[in-house]
Design a protein around this nucleic acid. Sequence first.
DNA 1: TAGGCCATCTGGTCCT
DNA 2: AGGACCAGATGGCCTA
Length: 143
Amino acid sequence: MKSRRASCTDSGSESSEGDSKSPEKYETTTRRRMAANARERKRMQGLNTAFDRLRKVVPQWGQDKKLSKYETLQMALSYIMALNRILTDARRHNAPHRQWLDLQFDCVQPESYPCLVRYDSASDQDYMHSSFSYQFDGHQVHA
DNA sequence: TAGGCCATCTGGTCCT
DNA sequence: AGGACCAGATGGCCTA
């Protein structure tokens, strides 16, 4: 792991704030801050692990450079929409394996994932529509 | 060298 | 009280 912020110690309390406190209070505050920093690092590492897992299942079209976090989210959104569209079209055209497709289709409906897809407002819906097709370096997922 | 991306620290807020 | 989550600030690394 890269060590950033060489000027900042892990205590993070190089300021003169502690000067006005008793040594005990200062020590307690410092200890809590260090613990909080460690938790935050761990939380962010978990978040980055999740981003890495997402990158692995999202199309990259031969991009040698890994997608940024923002690009990963946009690509995932478009990718999900595209897959949904495929299922919808296949179902509409009465494709072979209709039963199987119906099952898959039901599984990807928004009501099956209320925690993942929610339109809390009209603006949310507008945002979804505006983000529907994500363009990345000339590539685009049409959905 | 500027700009993009990222890791880390930090203080605030909310929740248990 | 303490942990989780969040957003702002800061500074390092990398690339065009």
